[in-house]
């Protein structure tokens, strides 16, 4: 998993959901939902951010806790999408 993807997502979360307060930054495995960091509006913001910032397309069935509940999952999901995109281009 790319550490830069994680870092970029973490910065986005701190800036947009935690008012820039780095002391509140969640750990990689901390649930963004259970800790009330992200709500329905936040999910939409996260989807828009990943699509625009990383240039990936996210299908509706992919917007689930398995991909969005914490920073590690978000980064793994994003990296997987990026790898898939590169593989598709190479072939």
């Amino acid at each position: 998993m790319s550490s830069s993807t994680k870092a970029e997502i973490r910065v986005f979360i701190i800036e947009n959901f935690l008012f820039g307060d780095e002391t509140q930054a969640p750990g990689d495995e901390v649930s963004l939902i259970e800790n009330d960091i992200v709500d329905s509006t936040g999910i939409l913001e996260l989807v828009a951010y990943l699509e625009e910032h990383f240039g990936i397309a996210i299908a509706d069935p992919e917007i689930v806790p398995e991909n969005f509940d914490n920073i590690a999952r978000l980064a793994a999901f994003t990296d997987g999408k990026l790898r898939h995109g590169l593989a598709a281009k190479a072939s």
Binding site: I33, D39, S40, I43, L44, F68
Partner: peptide
């Protein structure tokens, strides 16, 4: 929160 986001999207 996923349900509402997915429905609107």
């Amino acid at each position: 929160p996923f349900a509402g986001a997915r429905l609107l999207r």
